[in-house]
Design a protein around this nucleic acid. Sequence first.
DNA 1: GATGCAGAGTTAATCGATTAACGAAATCTA
DNA 2: TAGATTTCGTTAATCGATTAACTCTGCATC
Lengths: 339, 339
Amino acid sequence: MVTKPPRLADVARAAGVSTATASMALNGTGGTRIGADTRERVRSAAAELGYRPNTVARGLRTRRTQMIGFVGDDVATTPFAGQMIRGAHDAARRAGFLLLMVDTSGDPAETGEAIAALQERQIDGILLATMYHQVIDVPKAIGPTPAVLLDSRSADGSVSSVVPDERGGTLGALAELAAAGHRRIGHVTTAEDVEARRIRLATWSEHVAAYGLDPGELLAETPQAKTQGGYETAMRLLSRPERPSAIFCFNDRMAMGVYRAAAALGLSIPGDLSVVSYDDQELIAPELAPGLTSAALPHYEMGSWAVKELLRKLDEPDAEPVQHLMPCPIARRGSVAPA
Amino acid sequence: MVTKPPRLADVARAAGVSTATASMALNGTGGTRIGADTRERVRSAAAELGYRPNTVARGLRTRRTQMIGFVGDDVATTPFAGQMIRGAHDAARRAGFLLLMVDTSGDPAETGEAIAALQERQIDGILLATMYHQVIDVPKAIGPTPAVLLDSRSADGSVSSVVPDERGGTLGALAELAAAGHRRIGHVTTAEDVEARRIRLATWSEHVAAYGLDPGELLAETPQAKTQGGYETAMRLLSRPERPSAIFCFNDRMAMGVYRAAAALGLSIPGDLSVVSYDDQELIAPELAPGLTSAALPHYEMGSWAVKELLRKLDEPDAEPVQHLMPCPIARRGSVAPA
DNA sequence: GATGCAGAGTTAATCGATTAACGAAATCTA
DNA sequence: TAGATTTCGTTAATCGATTAACTCTGCATC
């Protein structure tokens, strides 16, 4: 007893018009060609039958599928990804689009395959998301398909992209410390050569150098930006003769280690040591005691910006590509106190 | 100079055959009708032109889009979701399917809309994922579309589903403690009425009751399963006259609070107190000091199981629905020591 | 020498919409 | 009042595949 879903032809028959009229009535196209009463007849017939357009058929004719391809390099495994996807998803949905997802574990050949798989499905555009802020070459497989880079920039600037404003976020985090009177601000960071490290480090260096301090004496590195590395670097930094009164951490996971080091050394946070960080990870920053002041990575906003930019490109194919910096707002919590 | 991508007709012309022949040659259909040399000619013509089938056109004809709808209730915001999506994604991709995602923030009306949006796009089947283990009514909007529930069961068992084996995981976690000689095992849990709480609590109750202990004396609840709640419940439990030698936590976030409480009371883990937990969240369990022994929620496996089950349903529409329990393996770390 | 049949393709219908091109009645204009 | 517009539709082509129903050779069979 499974009756097939109604087609446009069924609606047209029920309303006593041709499929052309039915199509125009439902879509509001064709200008004044359809009378108000006819339009109403068609609409109610459609509602009556529970008509839902077959977008596959429509897509074949219009060459628009109302689907956006989302290619992530291993993106689904990182805790940030959720917000990025959600931002893209919400913006897409509001415009009547859905996200077709492919995860690629970063391998370029696989990325090419993923892009091809999406193109076979005639997606209207592609979002290329990376796990963390980096500079990449746009895969040639993309061809003429409209695309936007998410959390990465293209080396040649030929494609629109959005990345976090790392410099602004770093300055914001440091401003929290400066406002509390801190001058000797240490930095613990990773040795991994990523864009985020470079910018955060350079911005911090400038900042402390402006006070006439030597960044080299206030810096400690670890191979991996994890809790253990944060612990070790903080131990090194805090046992130097003139220890910093505050530490700016590369990310929240390292900050967790800094908290642990402070506890081990009998230093209280924020009484003896102020801490600011980057990422504002929801499972870490608010859960530490005291809560960690951190510059938030605006993943949700980047995701939705990317979709809006992509939709703009669909409307105006000849628009110039835009490289956007998304602000990183500071989440203030209890880890900063006057020096 | 943007040349349109080649169509099947272009391949056929290049190979000097009809589109029917080209189609059959490329797809290997039509039995013996296509000679080996012709097939080869068509194949190389296709490769030459870089032909990629238009799956929208194909889908219109075959009524198969090779796309699976993934509906999540707020799923993209939880840290688990990534693994669940990835598990589903990988299994789908291996079979030539892609995931079309919709996130719904849980509202039933919105879920209905999401399902309709997917059906308009003619997805071959639907995965309905929930943020955490629960029992739900299958939305009527699904209709005859093949569906599988992910991390939830249907009240009436009419649809296949997969959920974690909470009982097995709890027994496994408690077995770690039992093997280390613990008898007085406390439990800190949430007051939220969710399936996970119910099963973990009941299983733990049985376990301690079997030692002749009164569960009521070893239990503490908090309104929300977060760090703060874990801290408070542990403080209560550990300041009772006969304090437990070990605590089984509802989840890792609460365990974080338990660690903090132990530190506040001067109890060392695992020396004075052993701790086991549930969820094995990657940002918490391995990062605590000592590492937290925890029963892992098999999100990846559930995701891929769900897709395989869905594909089976596509092949055998009359197959009986299956309710699957996915084992929760124990991640052993340093938080357990002999009593 | 007619019949049957397997092999290798071709023709044309079809999936369910959108839309360019065309048409008849009603209204307006000079 | 004849011609020009407007109004409100319809007819049929089209998007790019898949596939049921044919066709045409050549060969074996009786």
